[in-house]
Design a binder for these strands. Structure first.
Length: 220
DNA sequence: CTCTGATCATTA
DNA sequence: TAATGATCAGAG
């Protein structure tokens, strides 16, 4: 699929996808769906990337760089509530050169997000899960203030090397959680003395309470 | 090895 | 049963 040249073209493509099952969308793109997501957790997101013409790959930039739009599929239940938290980006654990929230990856990724809900209750087989109505979201001033406050709090933990203090419970909207191959994964980090040590890599995630609220705002 | 796409699965 | 910590596959 070609890269969408405008926001409207991207949204139009989304509207074409609404109501399709994942099996139907996969067939359209000659992609084989696994039976379940246990071994391919990211396949739904990758399928939507292909269908919408996102620049594939693992580059640390928005899915549609020219539109400054990040694509996020979000699993929801029958009431439109998110079933999972949402990964945002890896958390820096060393080399803290970014001081302003506006220069952070969190801000850049979340400044414009195209949310694509997928009805994905556990009892629904992957093939039968249905794509919902996508919507473009920009954080409100209030949401932005919360994100900024969380980011500053969480970055403080990382900057001061309080690695053992890190819990998923920190933050109102954002949280810090493991992000790696497994619990043995290691990356450079700072300890409380400012020395470089090996630590579990973390990522920023959006809590479901936050994404639930913005989904409700979009759908009522 | 890191970052992308995330969800799984055990715990509290 | 929600939340936290653990985990999987592919790209660059």
């Amino acid at each position: 699929m070609s890269i969408p040249t405008s926001e409207q073209e991207l949204l139009d493509r989304c509207y074409q996808l609404a109501g399709l099952t994942l099996a139907e969308l996969a067939a359209m793109h000659r992609i084989e769906l696994p039976v379940d997501l246990r071994r391919e957790k990211g396949i739904v997101g990758q399928l939507l990337e292909v269908a919408l013409g996102a620049s594939a790959g693992s580059k640390a930039e928005p899915d549609f760089p020219h539109l400054q739009i990040e694509l996020k599929t979000i699993p929801v239940d029958e009431q439109g509530r998110p079933l999972e938290s949402t990964y945002v980006c890896v958390a820096p654990m060393t080399g803290f050169t970014v001081e302003r929230f506006e220069d952070s990856w969190v801000y850049r990724k979340l400044s414009r997000v195209l949310w694509v809900p997928v009805l994905a209750s556990r009892q629904i087989p992957l093939q039968q899960r249905v794509i919902g109505r996508a919507f473009l979201w920009q954080p409100t001033e209030q949401e932005l203030a919360i994100l900024r406050q969380d980011w500053e709090e969480l970055m403080e933990l990382l900057r001061l090397g309080k690695l053992s203090h890190i819990k998923g419970q920190h933050g109102t909207a954002l949280q810090l959680r493991p992000k790696g191959a497994n619990s043995q994964a290691r990356t450079n980090a700072l300890d409380e003395d400012g020395a470089t040590v090996q630590a579990l890599p973390r990522g920023f995630y959006l809590k479901t309470s936050f994404t639930s609220a913005l989904l409700q705002r979009a759908f009522g």
